[in-house]
Structures are given as structure tokens and as C-alpha cells.
């Protein structure tokens, strides 16, 4: 298995959060970012599926339902590689705390549910180092589903896994799809040292745990922004 950034001698540290959509992970990483920023530390935030060039291909593919499990996987790997090599690595070299909303674990879980061979998917991401700290926000499936369905009543085609043929009903399809992704995450949690956070707890409780873990594992003062 690839080493962590610390093991590879990078001055920076990478913290990743994982979990189902609606698990609350994005809220938690946002609060973590705010805490670190307000302490005057060098922080950078990156999220999955966000590189410009790849975004245009992804949205084109998704619109025209041109994407297959293989090309879906490859396009996300391309997006990740772009962010990784252009942003994350240089920042980690410059001693930043890099926060990632989702990391390659998302691909390991999602692409496998979408029938890609697990070893192949893992192989695609083998150029990337492991995060120094990974949080997995484990919420009850129903809780996650409700959070998404409350906020955005219309489910996107690929989000619901509609191309997988789980069900003709988008909501049912989504339920099945997310349930399988959750299984994949749980199966890999020990292998990748996930710090599993009970996402059914209050926002504040979770954040307290997250902050404590971060402070314990990372020497935060060494990440202070240089005074001009």
C-alpha cells in the first residue's frame, strides 16, 4: 500500500473526509477548515470532481448518458490526478494542511458498486499517497437518504445509480446504490485506518472529536502562516 504524505517526507499533511452524501461530512470538514483558518494556519480545501477541464467532459457525458462504469471511473481519476498533481502535491510540499472532501476511497467504493474490477480501480490511483488522517462519517442509511431528499427533491441520474438497473424508481435506485456504497466503505475501513465518526451525533459532538483527533495527530503550530 502507498505511504502517507508524512511517511514520504512531505512537510504538509492531508486530511480527508469520506462518507455517503448526506452523512454530514461536508459540514464537518467546513467547520474544521474554519477552525484551522481562524487559528492562523495554512489551509487549503479541495473537493471531488472539481477540476474545470474535466468538469466540462463530465457534465457532457452525464447529460448525454455517454458514461459507462469504465469511462465514469476514468474521468473521475483524471479529475483527481489533475487536482492532485497541480494543487495538492505542491501545497503539501509548501507545508500546507490540505483538506479533501472525498479522496480515492470514494472511487474504490463507488466504482466497484458500478461493477469495475476492484484491483483495477485501486491500481488507477496507485500514483497517489495515502491521506495522513481519514475520517469516515457513518450515518444510518435512512438518515443520509432523508437529508439529501429533503434538500434536493430531484435526484440526478448518475447519483441515483439509474444506469445500474437497480430499480426504475429513482428513489429506490438511490437507496440500493447508496446502501451498496456504504457496504464497500465499511469493508475497507480497517485496511485504510478510517477514523469512524458516528454521524448520528450532533454536529458539535462530531466536530469536537474531529478537532481533538487532528490536534493530537498533527503538530498544528508548525503550520502557522508566515508573518509578512
Amino acid at each position: 500500500m502507498m505511504k502517507t504524505f508524512a511517511e514520504l517526507g512531505f512537510p504538509g499533511r492531508l486530511i480527508a473526509v469520506e462518507g455517503l452524501d448526506g452523512s454530514g461530512k461536508s459540514t464537518q470538514i467546513y467547520l474544521l477548515k474554519r477552525w484551522l483558518e481562524l487559528r492562523g494556519l495554512k489551509v487549503f480545501f479541495s473537493e471531488w470532481n472539481s477540476s474545470e477541464l474535466v468538469k466540462s467532459a463530465t457534465s457532457k457525458g452525464k447529460k448525454m448518458t455517454l458514461l459507462t462504469p469504465t469511462t465514469f471511473s476514468l474521468i473521475h481519476a483524471t479529475d483527481f490526478a489533475d487536482r492532485y498533481e497541480r494543487q495538492l502535491v505542491p501545497l503539501l510540499r509548501a507545508g500546507y494542511l490540505v483538506l479533501c472532501d472525498r479522496f480515492f476511497f470514494t472511487a474504490f467504493a463507488r466504482d466497484v458498486v458500478r461493477t469495475c474490477p476492484p484491483e483495477w480501480v485501486r491500481g488507477l490511483y496507485s500514483f497517489a499517497a495515502q491521506p495522513d488522517l481519514t475520517f469516515f462519517f457513518r450515518a444510518d442509511l435512512e438518515v443520509s437518504l432523508n437529508r439529501i431528499l429533503d434538500g434536493r427533491p430531484e435526484l440526478k441520474y448518475f447519483e441515483a445509480g439509474m444506469d445500474m438497473g437497480f430499480s426504475n424508481d429513482p428513489y429506490e435506485s438511490f437507496r440500493i446504490f447508496q446502501g451498496r456504497i456504504l457496504e464497500q466503505y465499511l469493508a475497507m475501513s480497517r485496511e485504510f485506518n478510517f477514523n469512524v465518526i458516528d454521524a448520528n451525533e450532533t454536529v458539535e459532538t462530531q466536530q469536537a472529536i474531529v478537532r481533538k483527533l487532528v490536534a493530537d495527530r498533527i503538530n498544528l503550530p508548525s503550520f502557522a502562516l508566515q508573518k509578512a
Binding site: 477541464l53 455517454l66 459507462t68 469511462t71 476514468l74 483524471t78 490526478a81 492532485y84 498533481e85
Partner: peptide, 22 residues
Amino acid sequence: NILSHTTLSLFYATDFADQVEN
């Protein structure tokens, strides 16, 4: 010329995969 090498590689692989399948 803005993409790093792994990215360019994966882009070509995506292009290739799309042609394989379609």
C-alpha cells in the same frame, strides 16, 4: 500545456476506453 502527466495519461485512457466501448 496545462495538464500534468498523469492527468494527460488518464485523459487519453478515457478517450481510449470510450472508443473501446462505443
